[in-house]
Each structure stands twice: as C-alpha cells, then as structure tokens.
Design a protein around this nucleic acid. Structure first.
Length: 423
RNA sequence: GGAGAGGUGGCAGAGUGGUCGAUUGCGACGGUCUUGAAAACCGCUGAACCGAAAGGUUCCGGGGGUUCGAAUCCCUCCCUCUCCGCCA
C-alpha cells in the first residue's frame, strides 16, 4: 500500500496519477487525510494522558517506600479518572487506525509516468519485438493435437486423477518440462540470481504480505485444516523471506530465482482461451525476485526485462514486449512489462512473463526496509518477473517447431533435453 | 498421534511486581595502534508513532485480565524446540 507520507505530502499528484489507473481517489483520499489528522490528535491526547499516569505511578512507588501511606492513597485516587480517559483514547486510536488501514489497502499503487493511458489489453504499448514467426503449412496442428499425436501430454488422464487443468506430462513431454526448469535456473544463476527453493504452501501472514490476501483469496487453493494456501507463484514465499526484515544497504540488490509449481483456481475462466496449455490450475514456473534501493529499481527492472528477452531469444521464439497501460496494469504495480510469444498454429500471442516494479508499495506491506550507514531505515523497492512460466512456452515450442520429422528442440535446450526431436 | 520444555534486542543469554527499552557476551559500526590486516584497547549500537524542536508514548510471541505500577502474576490463543510413536 501507499505510505501516508506520500499521500499527505503529494495529495493532488497522487489523485492525478491514480486517475490513469481509472481510480477516482478524491473521496477516499479525503477520508484518509481526515482520519490521519484524527489519529494524530488522538495520539497526542493519549500520550499526554499516559505520561501523566506514568509520573503518578512513579510517585506512588517512592511515597510507599517513604512510608507516606496517606499521600500514596491520594495519588491512587487520581489515577482512576486518567485510566478511564486512556481507555477512551485508546479505543478512538484503534478505531482510527483500523479504519485508516482498511482505506489504504483499497488504494492502488501509483503508475509510473511512462505508463500509457488506456482501458485494456488493446491499449498496451508494444515496445519491442523479436524473433521470426514461422511459416506453417496449412495442416499445422495446435499444441493439444500435437501433444496427443506424440503422446507427451495427457489432459484426459489429469481429469481422471484430479480435474481439468492438471495435465499429466509423459516421456519426452515430462523431460522437456524438466529441461526447461533446469535451463531457466542455470541461466538465472549465470545472471547473478541466487537460487532458492521455497515452500509451496504459505500461511495467511505471507498471503497478506504480497497482497494475495484479502482480495484475491478466491484465486488460491486453501487447506482448511491448517489454514494454509497453495502458492499461485513463487513470488509469494520468496518475497516473504524479506517480510519484517531490515536489510543492510550492502546486501542490496537482492537477486533470487526460484522454481516452483504454481496453483491457481482460475475461478471464472472458461471458453476457448483455456484449451490445452493456455490456462492451467497447476503449472511450473521459474520466478525472479529483486529487492533494491529506490534509486536503482528502474535500472533493475530494465535489467530483468533484458534478461527475460535473452531467454525467449535462446528459445528461438517470436516475442514482443508490452508496456501495460493504466487500465491493464495490476493494482499493486507501478510499471509492468509483459512478454508474449507467438503460438503459430493458434495464431495467438500468449503471455509468458510479466515483469513488474512495485516500488515501495509491496515493501510497505511487507515491512521490508534497509538501513544505510547513519540513516533511519527506509522502505526497499521490490520487483519480480516470470523467467519463465512453462506451459505457454511449451505450447509455442510445439506449434512453431512442428516439422515432418517431429517437434524440433531449440539448440540451446538440447543439452538439457538430451534429444533434438520429439517424434 | 502421546509426553515435556520454551518464546526477551542481529544472535546468544540474564532478568520473576517499581527509576528495565531491559545486565552481560558475541556480532556490527566508529576510533586508537599498524605499511596493511589481525589481536588488544576505547567508544557506540533496536524499532514504530506523535512533535518544528525539546521531549513524549508504545513495543520483552499475539490478545485479554489483576495492579497506582507488569518482561515479571493470572487467563487465552499462536508458534517453536526436545523425547517417544509412525513415516519419506
């Protein structure tokens, strides 16, 4: 969430910038300012009252020691009214604080100035493209047909075992998954990311930390018995490593990479967009997470974008990078670049990565701060991106590389798969 | 699943009703010494909020209670560890 400091010091600017996200902040920010004022006043009163009580208590202590019983009793009597006042102030304080908190979580992050205006996916700005779209013959097949032909992914079997959206990968299909995971992790390591293996199940505190809770609760699988959630992305456990942490300036930037299975309920998603590998309930992904000083975070973002580009280049896929517009960018992000690869048989662009700078929005919730030499702790900036999500990469690889000899594996991947064709 | 122990500052570890935000050790940081480093010695070292500042308030797992006063007593919840059992 946004810090009170930003809201109070740059009120008009905040409202103006929120408008790009089609968020009318005028009323809610007015309320925030009022509540903040109320909170300050209440605290001043409460502190004064508590201070008075503290003084009295100490005096009672010393009076008792000196054997001045009567005077001590007199002082005790005075505390009654003070304690009553404290209770009132405390209640007011708590009410103001929770109300303030409840409002603050409703305000989205401010979009960066370069975020384009726009309402939805059509208004995103294509900032870069690369790779060549292959010429497929007229009888080219979509990946779900290819998966069946080569018997490498069994969607029906997954339905039997679990349900739709949980495919079973077999033979070279399974080996391709494993190869891609290793390929992504090795590349990340070479780019300076520390590999971590996080839990795939998180508690509610972690869910709140990265913002999945409370609003996106319905998108996660929940284990009732233990009140734990299956992670929708490794971002959740990895970023939460840094929850309630004050980092030393010298530790920054932090660069982590993690493979995990990801679980998403995808409630409300139906139709042709979800065929085959296009949308799954369980999928594999390698995620990169960065934590950096505010003044370096946009440099970091660019580095991450360049890094993801290097991956799709090595996989010889046609790609494009979109700068998401105000209407399409997520609630918590300040600037997001989406990577899409072209899946030639479906003739569709598929999103395979989303790289975002959250600035201090997420860090404020996480209480992730850093301390430099002699300054007070201040909030870090957090960033993350997929590098990469597997299913749609596999979809594009299968479709784009179908040949009479079988599915051709890109050169960079062959050392990992151990085979050049799926046939 | 059964039994027990415990949650205190970056870590270790004292503190069992009053001046304790908390002894001490380690670590970190600054300095002296040194060509440099180590060692030694000296100093310093939590966070949040209110306040222009001075200063004030809060925080010893969370919440509640007793008391003029709670890290310390009571209740409750959560978590961690150890042993036994089961098991990858």
């Amino acid at each position: 969430m946004l810090t009170l400091k930003v809201i109070t010091e740059n009120t008009d600017d905040v409202i103006r910038r929120l408008a790009k996200k089609h968020f009318d902040g005028k009323e809610i920010i007015g309320k925030v300012l009022d509540l903040d004022k109320k909170r300050r006043n209440t605290q001043a009163s409460l502190d004064a009252s508590l201070a008075e009580l503290n003084v009295l208590s100490k005096s009672i202590g010393s009076l008792m020691k000196d054997g001045k019983k009567a005077e001590a009793e007199e002082a005790k009597a005075k505390t009654v009214q003070l304690k009553e006042n404290n209770k009132t102030f405390e209640n007011d304080m708590r009410d103001a604080e929770t109300e303030l908190q409840n409002l603050l979580v409703l305000i989205p992050n401010l979009p960066a100035e370069i975020v384009p205006e726009g309402n939805g996916a059509d208004d995103n700005l294509t900032v870069k493209t690369g790779g060549a779209v292959p010429e497929l013959s007229a009888d080219a097949l979509p990946h779900w047909e290819l998966a069946k032909r080569y018997d490498i992914i069994d969607f029906e079997l997954g339905v039997k075992i679990t349900g739709a959206g949980f495919p079973v990968y077999k033979g070279k299909g399974a080996r391709l998954q494993r190869a891609l995971i290793s390929f992504f992790l090795d590349n990340a390591r070479e780019a300076g990311y520390l590999e971590v293996q996080p839990p795939y199940v998180v508690n509610t505190a972690s869910g709140y930390g990265t913002g999945q809770l409370p609003d996106k609760e319905g998108q996660m699988y929940h284990c009732n018995e233990d009140d734990l959630y299956l992670i929708p992305t490794a971002e959740v456990p990895v970023t939460n490593i840094y929850r309630d942490v004050i980092l030393n300036e010298s530790e920054l930037p932090i660069k982590n990479a993690a493979y995990s299975a990801c679980f998403r309920r995808e409630a409300g998603s139906y139709g042709k967009d979800v065929r085959g590998l296009n949308r799954l309930h369980q999928f594999d992904k390698v995620e990169i997470v960065r934590i950096d000083k505010p003044e370096h975070s946009y440099e970091s973002l660019q580095e991450m974008v360049d890094y993801v580009q290097s991956l799709v280049d090595k996989l010889e896929l046609p790609w494009r990078i979109l700068r998401l517009c105000g209407g399409d960018i997520s609630f918590t992000s300040a600037l997001t670049y989406d990577f899409e690869v072209f899946s030639a048989a479906q003739k569709r662009w598929l999103e395979v990565s989303s790289v975002s700078n959250f600035e201090s929005y997420q860090a404020n919730r996480l209480k992730c701060r850093y301390k430099s030499a002699d300054k007070k702790p201040q909030l870090c900036h957090t960033l993350n991106g997929s590098a990469l999500a597997l299913p749609r990469i596999v979809a594009a690889l299968l479709e784009n590389n179908q040949t009479p000899k079988g599915i051709r594996i890109p050169k960079a991947l062959v050392p990992y798969t151990g085979f050049e064709y799926i046939d």
